[in-house]
């Protein structure tokens, strides 16, 4: 065997297993909140153009891990992250890496829909504006329209783009937040239980949307619903008490998990 770079090996491996390349990679990720340790040596790969679901009981660290990926934990004073997380091979916790640029590349959608108290148009245009992505008003209009279309919201709101985003229904609000994230042209989208505040019909719409978005974006989704993980994801990672218990193709995880705890969780014995 030739001497190859690490990335090269991975690429080889990926080709062999017919897997897409790795987009983000966590190695020995530890998180402390003050004295309390929330994550223990988590190693997890996120592959391009796939949906990776993070599952596990409440307080297992899945959201914590998600928030490490675009350094949202920085906003919490007492949080301390160690280990290595890479995006396209670059360490995102490297001091040279700019957190603003990182978050532009790794967008985030939150548990509760949080549209800004501005018009629908302004909500979507906010990201491109601050990042200076649009060269002209027409350009910006185009980004807003295409983002809303990609989020499947355009037809519902095209006549009231200047009305307040907070006036939409819960499901529409969440799709607006997704459109808002898409408008920045991220490479990865992180979703923190995006459907937990939505009714079943709205949830179904969002899940459909996630599946469509997979074509263009890498998606990491935290969910407490096993069915949702099974429906939308290609890979699943199971967290428990801050440890990554098991990780693999969704199909395998739900049919033939290696770990007893995964099995117990999936079959509803705890969680």
């Amino acid at each position: 065997m030739n001497i190859m770079t690490e990335a090269g090996v991975e690429q080889k491996l990926a080709q062999r297993t017919n897997e897409p390349p790795i987009k983000m990679k966590g190695e020995k990720v530890n998180v402390h909140y003050g004295e309390k340790r929330a994550l223990f040596d988590v190693d997890l790969d996120v592959r391009e153009n796939q949906v990776t679901a993070l599952i596990g009981p409440s307080g297992c660290g899945k959201s914590t891990f998600l928030r490490c990926l675009n350094r949202m934990n920085d906003t919490i004073d007492i949080a301390r992250v160690s280990g290595k997380i890479t995006l396209d091979g670059e360490d995102v916790y490297d001091p040279k890496i700019d957190v603003v640029e990182l978050r532009a590349r790794v967008g985030m959608v939150f548990q509760k829909p949080n549209p800004f108290p501005k018009s629908i148009y302004e909500n979507v245009a906010y990201g491109p504006r601050i990042h200076g992505l649009a060269k002209s008003k027409a350009d910006l209009d185009g980004i807003v329209e295409s983002s809303l279309k990609k989020a499947g919201l355009f037809n519902e709101v095209k006549d009231r783009l200047l009305e307040s985003g907070t006036g939409l229904s819960g499901g529409q609000q969440q799709r607006l937040c997704i459109a808002r994230a898409i408008a920045v042209s991220p490479e990865v989208i992180l979703m923190d239980e995006p459907c937990s505040a939505l009714d079943p019909i709205a949830t179904a719409r969002v899940e459909e949307l996630i599946d469509e978005l997979r074509e263009n974006y890498t998606i990491v989704i935290v969910t407490h619903s096993m069915q949702q993980a099974a429906r939308v994801s290609q890979r699943t990672a199971m967290f428990h008490l801050g440890y990554l218990v098991e990780e693999g193709a969704t199909e395998k995880m739900f049919t033939n998990p290696d770990d007893k705890r995964t099995q117990d969780y999936i079959t509803g014995r705890f969680g």
């Binding site: 396209d88 603003v100 590349r105 990042h131 200076g132 992505l133 898409i182 042209s185 263009n216 974006y217």
Partner: peptide
């Protein structure tokens, strides 16, 4: 919008968030 991602020599992808124009914008923003 992944079409915006191109690949330069060395295999490192450069997106609209990492190109030189973005770096300049970032500087003024900071």
């Amino acid at each position: 919008m992944t079409d915006a991602i191109s690949t330069l020599g060395g295999g490192r992808p450069v997106s609209i968030h990492t190109d030189d124009a973005a770096k300049a914008r970032l500087k003024t923003r900071y």
